[in-house]
């Protein structure tokens, strides 16, 4: 039935051709699967000491201007809550620790590399891709700077060069793709003095997180942030305080692009609905034409001379 419909219309409507191709391409894009060994990183906020070396390493690895490492031990930056931006793809924030006010809790912020990333689903040109290894990366050569990824991201991670007229970038953590190609760890993971960032396979890292919570139930709250949040993320957190008090957005288990993609695929499922609508309207047009305008000889006309004859 579907093929029949389409075949009929391919003959008459040139648009049908491009539209059909469009429909199939959308199906292909959602079938991409992830590797079993995909990356997972655990942020153990109980171990993090807020030295901000990861910020320095990240800047250096991405060739951002970064001052001397020594200057990063300045704790006055913690007075203000900070977000990643186009000068730093990761930042550390400090939170009060009620259990022990002298040992604050530090929480690193960066792209979470969602399992089902909203930005990848949203990007108009597919400049953002979820790679097999789990990382979400941005393609400079494709991006048109529409900033829809920023609208879509539930963690508000992608940032943009608002000060640039030419070649503005979308900036976000790429899990140090360049370094990993050379078999190196992401810069932040490598520099962390305490290995507060545990880098490994997502499944293994998850079980490590569970073990740590089980071993120290008085230290951690029983919640691995990122295990299930919006369908899971590559970066996961454990902490001694409820995550909504650590300014982590409270998110459900539903994937961010879930509803949106369902609607999209509903409207475009193998391009049946648009083609059906086209057929319906065509039929309506034909029926109405013959019911009302029996005096007309032309099937359809916008020719003014013909129209004039009616009046």
């Amino acid at each position: 039935m579907r093929n029949l419909n389409r075949r009929n219309f391919l003959k008459t409507a040139a648009i049908g051709i491009s539209a059909g191709a469009l429909g199939t391409s959308s199906i292909k894009a959602s079938d991409k699967s992830l590797s079993e060994d995909r990356i997972g990183i655990l942020v153990d906020t109980d171990v993090c000491v807020g030295c901000r070396h990861c910020e320095w390493a990240c800047r250096t690895a991405h060739e951002f201007p970064a001052c001397d490492l020594e200057e990063y031990s300045d704790i006055s930056v913690f007075e203000k809550y900070r977000r990643p931006d186009n000068t730093s793809l990761t930042v550390i924030n400090q939170f009060e620790n009620e259990k022990n006010p002298l040992l604050p809790i530090y929480v690193k912020v960066q792209c979470m590399h969602c399992e089902k990333p909203a930005c990848v689903s949203a990007c108009i040109v597919g400049a953002l891709t979820k790679l097999e290894d789990g990382s979400v990366v941005w393609d400079d050569s494709k991006c048109i700077g529409c900033r829809y990824c920023m609208v879509a991201c539930q963690f508000q991670i992608p940032t943009y060069d608002y000060d640039k007229a030419i070649d503005p970038h979308i900036w976000k953590c790429d899990l140090c793709r360049d370094r990993r190609i050379r078999d190196k760890l992401p810069a932040c993971v490598e520099i962390c003095p305490n290995e507060a960032l545990v880098f490994g396979k997502r499944s293994e890292v998850l079980s490590i997180a569970r073990k740590r919570i089980k071993r120290k139930p008085d230290v951690y709250v029983e919640h691995i942030y990122g295990e299930n949040e919006i369908g899971g993320t590559s970066w996961m957190y454990i902490a001694g305080k409820s995550f909504d008090k650590l300014k982590m957005p409270p998110l459900g288990k539903e994937t961010a692009p879930g509803i949106s993609e369902a609607i999209q695929h509903g409207i475009f499922s193998y391009f049946v609905p648009p083609v059906a609508l086209f057929a319906l309207l065509g039929t309506l047009m034909w029926v109405n034409k013959h019911k009302r305008g029996e005096s007309d000889t032309e099937i359809e006309s916008t020719d003014p001379d013909k129209e004039e004859s009616e009046f």
Binding site: L185, P193, N194, E195, V198, F199, G200, E204, I208, K211
Partner: peptide, 18 residues
């Protein structure tokens, strides 16, 4: 080495620092 198979135990650098 930090880049290792079994990450359940922190590496030497982290062990000292912790």
């Amino acid at each position: 080495s930090r880049n290792r198979e079994d990450v359940s135990v922190p590496d030497l650098k982290a062990a000292f620092h912790r």
